[in-house]
Design a protein around this nucleic acid. Structure first.
Lengths: 213, 213
DNA sequence: CGGGATCCTTGACGATACTG
DNA sequence: CAGTATCGTCAAGGATCCCG
């Protein structure tokens, strides 16, 4: 069960803090509602996931049990192995997923006490090429429509450099110097971003054994 | 691929030292030849397994690549999780598999310089209730027919105490005292067995969180 | 022994529609 | 929104036979 199709992804999403059905679904593109429903039900039977009634009355929220949390070492071992040995594939370039991961990995204690909006422009895409990362005292969010707030930073790059940066395979400083990434905004915001809000992948420290060209 | 049905078992068998098609198959009961063949082919494409021509000319032997060996942390994390949280199931009681694991886990350097044959009698079974563990300078083997050599030790127990002992959930001393396990043979052999040839599970040190009744 | 080729069944899954 | 129910499809894989 733990290794069945999509379950590792679902558990990762729960570990990352997803709680509702659609949050889990959004962070698992390609997964159908039918299958997610079936998996969650099965994970509940296996005591890995617990359901709680939503305050709103409609639907439930999903949470890992102690048993489920303890799957983290398994997922970490898988992630480390993948980072070390697998090439960067097309599917890892999905900017929404990269930014989703970025948003989840910014430490709560590093969140600003005011709202910050960072726009990401993907120069190699023609549609769905603009995303917004919102950092607020209460949480972090990624959306692909203008959130209606002023933008504090604008991050311009292509999908591949974005993924490589997040995976720690290019340093942000070098990428800025080489023009792979551009960052616009006030000096103060840039500094905050570079020091606190990078949200590097959990496996950014893993040294790949194979050259991904 | 790494998490596809049976692949973790296949990789575990390769890590344990299986090299031929049938060795892998024997240690994965329930796995069909068709599927093992397909999996090995796929693992080869993924550079996890390497084939080598057999000296005999017929068939090949299968070996893990560096990439494959590096899956060990993943399997270890899975095994630890399972030992900690999952109940002992019927399938884990299979005495052949338990003894297979025992044989693989006896350190080469602890192997005797002469042949030792240990017979295991399963008191709760009526057929296929007798196995032989053979320890030789050149290797270890389990069979379910009399190997034609004298027996040095006779280990009498039921399947469940056998599994519990191997998993480290009952100490051999306590099991002997309680009569769950009987051991017959010369005092010297018994001493060797108890000190060197127990071949406890790799997860025998993991403390289960749940009570398996 | 050491597998490969075929055939045929099953069940896993996606699409769609539905419900409170 | 937050899922559930139904149905059709396709591919994964088991059984069987085959071959050197």
């Amino acid at each position: 069960m733990v290794t069945a199709r999509w379950t590792p992804i679902i558990v990762r999403n729960l570990l990352a803090g997803c709680t509702t059905f659609n949050e889990i679904l959004d962070a698992a593109p390609g997964l159908s509602k039918t299958l997610l429903s079936e998996r969650l039900k099965r994970l509940e039977r296996y005591k890995i996931v617990e359901l709680r009634a939503k305050p709103s009355g409609r639907g439930s929220t999903y949470h890992l049990s102690p048993l489920g949390f303890d799957l983290w070492p398994v997922l970490e071992a898988m992630g480390t192995w993948g980072s070390r040995w697998l090439d960067l594939e097309e599917e890892h370039l999905n900017p929404y997923l990269v930014l989703w991961d970025v948003s989840k990995l910014i430490d709560v204690k590093d969140l600003p006490d005011h709202r910050v909006v960072i726009r990401f422009d993907l120069t190699d895409l023609t549609k769905r090429n603009r995303f917004w990362l919102m950092l607020e005292p209460t949480g972090r969010e990624v959306c692909d429509k203008h959130p209606g707030f002023d933008e504090d930073l604008i991050f311009t790059t292509a999908t591949r450099p974005l993924a490589l940066w997040h995976l720690g395979r290019v340093a942000i400083g070098a990428a800025l110097r080489d023009g792979l990434i551009q960052l616009e905004g006030s000096a103060a915001m840039k500094k905050e971003f570079l020091s606190k809000w990078q949200g590097l992948s959990m496996f950014a420290h893993v040294k790949p054994e194979l050259q991904s060209h």
